[in-house]
């Protein structure tokens, strides 16, 4: 690993200022599960590593029925999936946070880090998309907000500009009749990168029979995690049944733009999008009915 300096930032503004001063040669350290490997394998270079874990808002995990959920960008997965309110209201987030790596990865890895790593295969991003998360980005003197589906722009690239870093994620409170799920396909039962990941959320009507709205997002089938709005929209007003799920799955399949690599061929990935979209929708509806 190349040599670098290490600083613990006092607050978000401090971190953003350091980033700006370093002109692209500084990196944010949250859980480190991606950053340290990337530095070690010389996939990225840095003169300065800025540890943001001591910043309260970056570590925060809080829920209120009016405001919804705030997830500090560095809050590790193991805190998220043990949080009673997250367990109760954000099942898609629970799915994703509990299958990123193994237990020892979840002890460090954060959703913010997963997002900033901007892998097309990131597990948490489809889940965040279907939960309509908003990213709060800190600058040296200001803040801006970006919907999570717009955060990643290319493999490993995000909307973050110079002197900007992701401070937290805000998820709205789920409406009545809401359910969500994130499913991924991997060859083993743990530890793999998603060959395909599918997040789905639905809001059912008062009778829990028809779908009022739905969101579907895909991982590992495009240069960025993919929000397939038309697949969700196609379910509006439909009865929540296998036939409707299959229709949405077909739209998701068509939207996928997978490549072939060591983890799967384009053909296999497209096939899996169909299978997993149906399964994720079925699970989201099942949860909405609870």
């Amino acid at each position: 690993m190349q040599p670098f300096r290490y600083i613990r930032a006092h607050n978000a503004e401090h971190a953003a200022t350091l980033l700006q001063q370093q002109d692209g040669r500084a990196r944010i350290l949250a859980g480190g599960t991606d950053l340290i490997v990337a530095l070690r394998e010389h996939r990225i270079e840095a003169d300065l590593v800025i540890d943001v874990k001591g910043i309260p808002e970056v570590e925060e995990l809080s829920f209120s029925p009016g405001e919804g959920l705030r997830i500090g960008a560095a809050a590790p997965c193991h805190r998220i999936y043990r949080h009673a309110d997250v367990l109760h209201h954000y099942p898609g987030i629970i799915d994703a946070a509990s299958l990123i790596g193994g237990i020892q990865i979840q002890g460090r890895a954060s959703l913010g880090g997963n997002l900033c790593n901007a892998s097309p295969a990131a597990d948490s991003i489809p889940a965040l998309i279907v939960h309509s998360a908003i990213c709060e980005i800190a600058l040296p003197q200001s803040r801006r907000r970006v919907p999570v589906e717009e955060f990643c722009v290319a493999p490993g690239k995000t909307v973050l500009g110079r002197g900007e870093f992701l401070a937290s994620l805000h998820l709205p409170p789920p409406p009545p009749g809401f359910g969500a799920a994130y499913l991924r396909f991997i060859p083993r039962n743990e530890m793999d990168i998603a060959v395909v990941g599918v997040g789905a959320s639905v809001q059912l009507d008062a009778e829990r029979r028809h779908i009022r709205s739905a969101r579907i997002a895909l991982a590992a089938v495009a240069p960025t995690p993919l929000f397939v709005q038309e697949a969700g929209d196609a379910l509006i007003g439909a009865e929540a049944n296998e036939e409707a799920f299959a229709r949405a799955a077909e739209i998701a399949r068509a939207a996928a733009r997978p490549i072939s690599d060591m983890r799967g061929t384009a053909e296999f990935r497209r096939h899996l999008v169909g299978v997993l979209t149906q399964r994720a929708l079925a699970k989201a509806v099942e949860r909405a009915n609870k």
Binding site: G102, R188, N189, E190, M191, D192, I193, M262, R263
Partner: peptide, 10 residues
């Protein structure tokens, strides 16, 4: 990660 040996869960 990508040379996939069985885990306890497999």
């Amino acid at each position: 990660l990508d040379y996939r040996m069985p885990t306890a869960l497999d």
